[in-house]
């Protein structure tokens, strides 16, 4: 595995914005975090289309909304904690309620922020954004998917929340990957259990499937990059064909992918859903990779949860 290509999705965000910069209708806003969110990549090429709103995220979201009413496609960028957390109500009332064309680029999501600690490790953003009508949520698994997601967000009319990470993560998609908004991606077929993963947990899911295979368990792996609207069809098919689901996300087990999958299946085709995520707790400081281990966000724990899901399935059979 020495030749694994790694990239941070926040870097991909900056790169994708730069690709879009030649369009007349694109503006990029930031709240004094351009170097961290990587909107600086855009700013360097298109300074006249970059607006730094300073450390005032609520105002930035409102300014983005106002600009959108004049015909611009506006990217508003900050850390997930401030974009979804601090500015939640501005996103709800000024952007989503009037259904304006604002794309929220939220970087530094999850535990993998690392040393900055709990105040900056937002594990609640998907839950918050999922509760807002009109909002589309994309949580890409790698840099290739992140670039594709930004382009898909622009093609979609209305608000989109894009969740990016600070940490360089292994690339799971090939260069010619075709991204379809709202469609789950079947990465590996299997019949015993389905691992539904999002973001950096997709790579861990693929590793877990290999481990399970060695133990004679045939796991299906699905990447859910669009958490809202969620691809019910791929989930229901997986429930019918494998009868057991594990969800894996770098987000609270409350309100994120696990909740979305549970909600979708409980109404359509109930099967055991075992969730792996941040277990209703705050993060802490440390190196990102160590923290992911400490908080159990790894292949090893996906394997354990998969076995638990299969056990539940067998009990119910």
């Amino acid at each position: 595995m020495a030749d694994v290509i790694k990239g941070a999705t926040r870097d991909a965000y900056g790169a994708a914005l730069k690709q879009l910069g030649t369009r007349d209708d694109i503006l990029v806003l930031d709240a004094d975090l351009a170097k961290a969110t990587k909107t600086i990549t855009f700013k360097k090429e298109f300074p006249e289309k970059f607006i730094d709103c300073g450390i005032a995220e609520g105002n930035m979201m409102g300014v983005a909304a106002g600009l959108a009413t004049t015909g611009y496609t506006v990217f508003a960028s900050s850390f997930a904690m401030f974009a979804a957390g601090r500015a939640f109500e501005q996103v709800r009332n000024s952007i989503a309620y009037p259904n304006l064309n604002v794309k929220i680029g939220a970087t530094h999501a999850g535990i993998s922020v690392g040393e900055d600690g709990a105040s900056h490790q937002c594990c609640e953003d998907i839950a918050l954004m999922r509760s807002i009508p009109n909002m589309v949520i994309i949580n890409p698994a790698d840099d290739v998917e992140a670039i594709a997601a930004v382009h898909a967000a622009v093609d979609h009319e209305g608000p989109v929340y894009m969740r990016f990470g600070r940490l360089a993560v292994p690339r799971v998609n090939c260069e010619d990957y075709k991204f379809e908004l709202g469609k789950g991606v079947l990465l590996k077929d299997g019949k015993d259990v389905t691992i539904v993963a999002t973001g950096l947990m997709v790579n861990e899911a693929l590793i877990a499937a290999e481990t399970l295979k060695a133990e004679g368990i045939d796991a299906r792996v699905i990447n859910i990059h669009t958490i809202k609207p969620i691809d019910k069809d791929i989930l229901v098919t997986a429930a019918k064909e494998t009868g057991a689901i594990v969800t894996a996300e770098e987000h609270s087990i409350i309100g994120g992918l696990g909740s979305a999958v549970s909600e979708a299946l409980s109404e359509e085709y109930p099967v055991p859903v075992v969730k792996l995520g941040v277990n209703d707790t705050f993060g802490k400081s440390g190196p990102a990779l160590e923290l992911l281990k400490i908080f159990g966000l790894d292949a090893e724990n996906i394997v354990a949860k998969a076995k638990k899901a299969i056990e539940l399935k067998n009990k119910l059979a």
């Binding site: 105002n59 409102g62 300014v63």
Partner: peptide, 26 residues
Amino acid sequence: DMSTGSLGQGISAACGMALGAKLKGK
């Protein structure tokens, strides 16, 4: 011209509109 009601938010949107006018030369 803008959905409002949650106090404090309208003026930010108004700033965005005014900036939009400037950027578009309107």
